[in-house]
Simulated assay, not measured.
Amino acid sequence: MHVAIVGAGSLGSVFGVRLANGAEKVRVSFVMRSAPAPGREPLGMRIEQVDRGSGVLALEAPVRTTAIPADADVILVCVRFEQVDGALAALLAPSRAPVVTMTPIFPQHHALLVRELGAERLFPGMPGVVAYSPGPGETSNGEGAPCVRYRYWLPRAATTLIEQPERRVPAIDALAQAFEGAGISSRAQAGVHATNVATTCTFVPVMMGIDVTGSIDALLGDDTALDLVLRAAEEARILARHYGKPAIWADWFVRFLSRSRLGAWAPKAMVAQSLRLGVGFARRRSPEGVAYVEEHFGRKLRAQNLQMAEKMVELFRERSLPHEAMAELRDRLRGPGSVA
């Protein structure tokens, strides 16, 4: 099986390296939007699993190309949210292979890709992998070859899901089986797109709050920002219900954060203190996990967070739902002096 991966960042690299090293090895090509500049030739890839024994896998010479290979059986899209655009559609259009999107695909993006590719080619997915780059620089693959390094988790409660239409598609079943062979729990099922939209809408306001304030501690120490984020999260939870049922962990997470969970009588100080205790526990159990959340959402993904906020406000308006807090959070992501 030949899998073409568009987006060779942390998530795409983990999928690609694991598939290429799986029990039944898969041919993997990484598709780049442009060729590297002279003297900037691509490096190998090394992935380090944080949980379940800290295994290490590497690809010394990954296959990279600037076009979808003609013999690709399936295309796996792992780009950032703001990179789902016309240029991506143009890159995918020449191929006839099924396209599985591991990027959260909002209704606006879904409409664009269906229009450009056809509904029969598009299969929204939902990754059960959490991955990040620990920072700039290179490392060795263990044998002296330079590699780009990524670290990742495979949470036991998370399964990589792929949309499965009523009429089964052999390439989608084969991809799910390839994931399983690579040690990534996976299955094809109906309703994945709706679940992904609902899940993303449910939890991202909290991540946006970390972005706006700069860190988890800064958010918890700013009563005004925390109140804004909690109100936006409650608005977003209502929006999510209009698109589907979020993953259980996301719904419980926001319910825990919601002041209504403690009762209308609960003072802000009690809410903030309960959150600080939760964060303190998380830091003791997984300091790297908390650092990942702060780096990934608090500093790295401003462009993604802003576009998510913009798209969510559009969805609120389409549904005529109250979104005062969400609009204000979006404006804070835009920067000082921004207006709705």
Rank of each mutant, 00 (worst) to 15 (best):
I5W: 02
A8L: 08
G9W: 02
S10T: 01
S13D: 04
V17Q: 08
A23H: 12
E24H: 12
E24R: 14
V26Q: 15
V28N: 11
S29Y: 10
F30N: 06
M32G: 09
S34K: 15
S34T: 15
P36N: 00
G39N: 08
R40A: 15
E41R: 00
P42V: 05
L43I: 05
V50T: 02
D51V: 04
G55I: 11
G55Y: 10
T65Y: 10
P69E: 03
A72H: 05
D73K: 10
D73T: 07
V74N: 04
I75C: 06
V77M: 00
V79L: 08
V79Y: 11
R80P: 01
R80A: 02
E82W: 12
Q83T: 09
D85E: 10
D85G: 10
A89M: 05
A93R: 14
A93N: 06
R96G: 12
A97H: 00
A97C: 01
P98K: 03
V100N: 09
T103D: 01
A111M: 10
L112G: 05
V114P: 00
E116G: 02
R121G: 00
R121S: 00
M126Q: 13
P127E: 06
A131V: 04
Y132I: 10
G135A: 12
P136K: 02
E138N: 12
E143T: 14
P146G: 09
C147V: 15
C147E: 09
A157H: 15
L161W: 06
P165A: 02
P165T: 00
R167G: 05
P170W: 04
L175Y: 01
A176N: 01
A176E: 00
Q177G: 11
A178C: 07
A178M: 06
G183V: 03
A190D: 14
V192G: 03
H193S: 02
T200D: 09
G209A: 10
I210P: 00
A218H: 08
D222H: 03
D223I: 09
T224R: 14
A225L: 06
R231K: 03
A233M: 13
R237G: 13
K245Y: 12
K245C: 13
A250F: 02
W252P: 00
F253H: 11
V254G: 05
L257A: 15
S260E: 13
R261L: 12
L262Y: 15
G263Q: 05
A272H: 09
S274N: 13
R276S: 05
L277Y: 11
F281L: 15
A282Y: 12
A282M: 14
S286P: 02
V290F: 08
V290L: 07
V293N: 09
E294Q: 11
G298A: 01
A303G: 06
N305P: 06
L306P: 03
Q307A: 10
V313R: 10
R317M: 11
E318V: 10
E324I: 03
A327T: 12
A327R: 13
L333K: 05
P336V: 03
G337F: 04
